[in-house]
C-alpha cells in the first residue's frame, strides 16, 4: 500500500471517490443523484486517462497500472450500453458496476507502480492497442456476467423465480457480448505473436491462462446449450470460474514468479 502524491494519483483518487460515493448513494436509494455522481466519476476517469496518455506519449495499455486504468475507464460506457441495449440496468446491477469501477482502480491507486515506461521493441505494433482494448472490454463484460451469476447463486431462496431467471439470462447475455471480444483478443494476440516473435503460439504461461479462460466460456456455452436452465446453478458456477481464470490470467501470470515467460512486462 502506497499513496501516490502526484497529479496522476489525485485524479485516480478523485475517480474512485466518485464511484464509491455513487455506490453508497445507490444503497441509500438516491438513484438519480447516484447516476449523476457516477457520470462525473467517468468524466474524472477520462481526464485521468487522458493525462496518462499525454504523460507517457503512447496509448496507456502497457503495464498493469495502465491496464487497470483502462478497466476503470470503460466501466461507465459499458454500464450505459447494457442498460440501454440489453435492458440490464436495474439498480442492483448499476450499484455493482460502480463497485467494480472502484475495485479495479484500487490497485492503480495504491499498489501498482506508476513509473512511465517506454515501449520495448516487441510492443511497437499496431496490434498492441486493439489486442489489449478488446481484452479489457471483454473482461468487464465477463465480470458483469459473473456478478449476475453470483446474484443467481446467492438469491436462490430469497428472491422470486422471475428475478432468478432474469439473473441467469443476464449472465448468458453478458457472456454472449463478451465472448466474441475474448475470442478476438486471443486471436489478435496470436497474430501479433506471429509478427513479433515468429510464432502464433508459444505455449507461454500467459497464453495458456488466456486459452483456459476462453475455454471456460466455450464450456459454459456448450453446457448451457445441452441443459438449458435445468442446472442453472452449474451455469452460474461455470461463469464465475471463467472470471476467476481471467483474474488469474491478468494478475497471477504477470506477478507470480511461477510463470516466467515472455509476457512478464509489468
Amino acid at each position: 500500500m502506497e499513496i501516490k502524491y502526484t497529479l496522476q494519483g489525485l485524479l485516480i483518487y478523485l475517480t474512485m471517490a466518485h464511484y464509491l460515493v455513487a455506490f453508497v448513494l445507490m444503497l441509500l436509494r438516491l438513484r438519480k443523484t447516484a447516476g449523476v455522481v457516477y457520470f462525473f466519476g467517468f468524466v474524472a476517469a477520462v481526464v485521468c486517462y487522458g493525462y496518462r496518455w499525454y504523460h507517457v506519449a503512447h496509448i496507456p495499455m502497457q503495464n498493469l497500472f495502465e491496464v487497470f486504468l483502462t478497466l476503470g475507464l470503460v466501466i461507465y460506457p459499458i454500464s450505459l450500453f447494457c442498460k440501454r441495449y440489453l435492458q440490464i440496468g436495474d439498480p442492483a446491477t448499476l450499484a455493482t458496476d460502480m463497485l467494480i469501477g472502484f475495485i479495479v482502480l484500487f490497485p492503480t491507486g495504491f499498489k501498482f507502480d506508476a513509473e512511465p515506461q517506454r515501449l520495448p521493441p516487441a510492443l511497437q505494433s499496431w496490434l498492441f492497442a486493439p489486442h489489449v482494448a478488446v481484452y479489457m472490454l471483454s473482461y468487464i463484460f465477463m465480470a458483469k456476467a459473473a456478478v449476475q451469476a453470483v446474484c443467481r447463486l446467492m438469491g436462490l431462496r430469497k428472491r422470486s423465480t422471475d428475478q432468478l431467471l432474469g439473473a441467469e439470462m443476464a449472465t448468458y447475455q453478458m457472456v454472449c457480448v463478451g465472448f466474441p471480444l475474448l475470442t478476438l483478443g486471443l486471436i489478435l494476440g496470436s497474430w501479433w505473436g506471429k509478427i513479433a516473435w515468429g510464432d502464433y503460439w508459444g505455449w507461454d504461461p500467459k497464453e495458456l491462462w488466456s486459452l483456459a479462460s476462453w475455454l471456460f466460456f466455450v464450456g459454459y456455452l456448450h453446457f448451457r446449450h445441452m441443459f438449458g436452465k435445468k442446472h442453472a446453478y452449474i451455469n452460474s458456477a461455470w461463469a464465475i470460474s471463467g472470471l476467476v481464470a481471467i483474474i488469474l490470467t491478468l494478475l497471477w501470470a504477470n506477478l507470480s514468479r511461477l510463470f516466467e515467460g515472455m509476457h512478464s512486462y509489468a
Partner: peptide
C-alpha cells in the same frame, strides 16, 4: 491441460 501447461513453463 492448459492450466497444467501454465504451471510447467513454456
Amino acid at each position: 491441460l492448459s492450466i497444467y501447461g501454465a504451471f510447467i513453463g513454456a
